[in-house]
C-alpha cells in the first residue's frame, strides 16, 4: 500500500507553466529526431503550406521540453512542477513509462503555450524487479488565443 503522503496527490493540480515555442528550438528538435521535413525549418516552404507557418512537430511540446530557469524557481518541466516525493518511500529511481497524445490544433513557431496538469492516478505494482509505483499525469496545452492544442497523458514509473 502506498502511504497517504503519496496518494494525497491523486486528483491534485500540479501547476501551470507557460512556454514560448521558439523557431530555433523547433529546428533543433526536428534535427535531433532525424526528421528533415522542411515544415520545421524552411520559412518559405512553410508559408506556402496549409499551416502558413513553421509548425512544431507533434510531441514537441510537453514532456520533456522544459521551461528555462528563472530567478524565482528551479528548472521545471512543463506541467510537472509539483508531485509526490517517491524517494522518501524508497522508490528513488524513475523511468518514463509512456505517453498518449491528442493533437487537436497545430502548434506554430511563436506560439505561447500554457500547460495545466493534474495527477490522475498513482498505483502500486510489484514487478519482476520489485515494488514500483505508476503515476499518471494529464496535461492540457492551450495557446495564446485560448485554444486547446493538445492533451497528454503520461506515465512515470518509480522504483
Amino acid at each position: 500500500m502506498l502511504p497517504e503522503e503519496i496518494t494525497k496527490f491523486i486528483g491534485q493540480a500540479t501547476g501551470v507553466t507557460t512556454y514560448k515555442v521558439e523557431q530555433g528550438a523547433i529546428a533543433r528538435y526536428a534535427d535531433a529526431v532525424g526528421d528533415p521535413n522542411p515544415i520545421y525549418w524552411d520559412e518559405e516552404y512553410a508559408k506556402k503550406s496549409k499551416y502558413g507557418s513553421i509548425i512544431a512537430p507533434p510531441g514537441f511540446f510537453g514532456w520533456p521540453v522544459r521551461q528555462p530557469r528563472s530567478a524565482e524557481e528551479p528548472e521545471v518541466i512543463m506541467g510537472t512542477r509539483r508531485g509526490p516525493n517517491f524517494a522518501e518511500i524508497g522508490l528513488p529511481r524513475v523511468l518514463d513509462g509512456g505517453m498518449e497524445y491528442d493533437f487537436i490544433k497545430p502548434v506554430k513557431a511563436g506560439d505561447t503555450l500554457t500547460a495545466t496538469s493534474q495527477i490522475k492516478d498513482i498505483r502500486e505494482r510489484t514487478g519482476s524487479t520489485g515494488r514500483m509505483a505508476f503515476l499518471i499525469r494529464e496535461t492540457t496545452f492551450t495557446n495564446q488565443d485560448g485554444e486547446v492544442v493538445a492533451r497528454t497523458r503520461s506515465t512515470s514509473i518509480h522504483r
Partner: peptide, 14 residues
C-alpha cells in the same frame, strides 16, 4: 530516451 523513440514514431506517422 523513451521520448526519442516516441518522436521516431511521430516521424513515421507524419
Amino acid at each position: 530516451h523513451g521520448a526519442l523513440k516516441r518522436q521516431w514514431l511521430v516521424h513515421l506517422m507524419t
